[in-house]
Design a protein around this nucleic acid. Structure first.
Lengths: 194, 194, 194, 194
DNA sequence: CATGAATGAGTGTTCATTCAT
DNA sequence: CATGAATGAACACTCATTCAT
């Protein structure tokens, strides 16, 4: 269950805010600009959020919520860990394609020190945890050979994210299908030929 | 060959500047603070660098230079692509351990939009290119099965970086040995058991 | 006769508002805060008072009204100017003890330039006028030796107020009995021995 | 010894700042306005003072310093407590005439709650302490009949200040000579006729 | 009568940059 | 070469006030 401030009921407003934070980054994005983009007065922003940081946090939280929900949904119908992982990779790439702006924000927070490092990167970690759960399950069933589940989950997320961003930078969007096939190849079979 | 502004002759000063940018991020880091940390007057900073952006760029460039040099050096003695890749991973993890502050800066710039996105992320891409060269070589020799060299290189770099950061976050430094073995396992053999 | 807005029927609310204005001062006190302290919505405040200034004015007016009334009441039974003055000093000190918060507001307005200087300090002047009346009476009867009645009345009020505030600052409240005896001594006999 | 920020070397600037704070009060006075009045950029204000509060504090401290110095100077040549007190009253009234703006600030801080109540009113208390010293001396020599020295000193200062302010309000400036004679009369002989 | 969401003008404060010395 | 005082544009944030319900 997730309560979203009334200001975000309007998805359009939400997307506009995301875009500003994503394109310019946290600090260069100004509250004036955000107010203009959302069509409300600056004071209204402060009526709903304690401060800029709080607004930023809410945006990220909402983004994580969306991604997490769609991933969990996609996993529901799968029982095989390998298929689960494929689904997850597909969903993440899909999300990054749909909300490419948020992808940048996520990664910047994961590696960044913008604000409230702990909390924000913690949010993003939730996605990595889901990967970890799948890996653990697969390891138990003897399908995956994984030494350290957490490290491996992180590596998989790092690989997916980096390639997604690369695709966006190169083609303007995430070419999910191609990227997915390349990633799966690497992740499942590794580099070594037979 | 790399000319470093006379201000950086003193490695100590350089490290101090890196730390400030790494810990606080580009925007929150102030010129006052940097001047204080380096023990020179603020005006002196502007005597050596056109502006804050230029100073930041120089720091990153110098960092990339160090990493690139040590990687190239490590690869010199290797001919086998697989061993080359192992060496590279080891060197990158080593570098991230030695200069963990710079690691954060690199990744933030790779994914970030701080300033001069193109130039800065371009700098970091140079490391990815080296990975690409190795993969291409290994593919040619039939050792690696790689569909898209660039995507795969990016994925490998993403995997290595993400786990390195994770190790820093968790243990305060990069536990190179453990991380390396896990990464190699994933990258070379993939997840699937036999 | 004094009509108090219906909002002040509840003395508790009134005291809460006084306290906020007294402790924080006019500008730092916010309407939000006042609304919260009185348990009504902010809009309700504006329903009863034209604006913040008007609310503040009403508070002071009400305070002056209380003090003036109790002073006049105490003077009713006295005919001797000297006794009258003693009674007045006692009442003022009493009032400052009972409503120490309002004491601060009074003095600040007397010497201050907050808002509507003329009107507000004029309100407080009413108390000084009463002192003046007593002095004039005593002068006429040959009991008091006063050159300039107004100046002297002001001096007496200044002496009483300053010592009252000092007592509050030092002991947390006005120690009426002690302060009164000291003040009377000074005011009636002066400093000079014999 | 008193070090005054370089910005106050220029007495004109100092007087301008005082006037703004005195006429408008702490909160309504804006840094923009002060910058304009002193002919420096707003940033320059912040280069010399940590913030508005610090600037305000410095102004008051400087004022207290001036008053204290001129009072101490005037007392040097006097040995008789009664004459000392007369000199002090004259100096204070003189100061209030010369720097009538500062008089308002002093009293507002003495009774007010603007900012840093403790520190600022403490500053003003220094003047009251000097009065106390004189009273104590006179008491010891059997010249003054004073029960509580501190209370009495406060009362005297209150009487002087209130009448000074009254004179300013009424005549636009402190008519030192007249006010002094009235005050002395009250303070030394009291109200009672023979 | 009462509410509280929305407003936007106003203000304190920061900080990269300049330049006279 | 180096300095640090001075600058002013830019920004986050506040809060008295309004008004539709």
């Amino acid at each position: 269950m997730m309560t979203v401030s009334s200001l975000f009921k309007d998805t359009e407003k939400f997307k506009n805010i995301i875009e500003i934070f994503a394109v310019k980054g946290y600090h260069p994005a100004t509250m004036d600009e955000i107010a203009r983009a959302t069509g409300v007065a600056k004071g209204t922003l402060y009526y709903h959020y304690k401060n800029k940081e709080d607004l930023y946090y809410s945006v990220i939280e909402y983004g994580v919520h969306i991604l997490e929900r769609s991933v969990r949904q996609a996993l529901q119908n799968q029982t095989d860990p390998a298929l689960k992982l494929k689904e997850l990779i597909r969903e993440v790439l899909n999300f990054f394609d749909l909300y490419s702006n948020i992808a940048f924000i996520f990664l910047r927070e994961l590696y960044g020190n913008n604000i409230r490092r702990d909390v924000l990167s913690g949010l993003v970690q939730r996605i990595i945890q889901i990967i970890g759960e799948i890996l653990a399950e697969g390891k138990e069933q003897g399908i995956f050979t994984v030494k350290d589940v957490d490290t491996c989950a992180t590596a998989v997320f790092g690989a997916v994210s980096a390639t997604a961003i690369r695709s966006i930078n190169k083609h303007g969007r995430v070419r999910s299908v191609q990227v997915q096939s390349h990633i799966e190849n690497l992740v499942f079979n590794g580099l070594l030929a037979e």
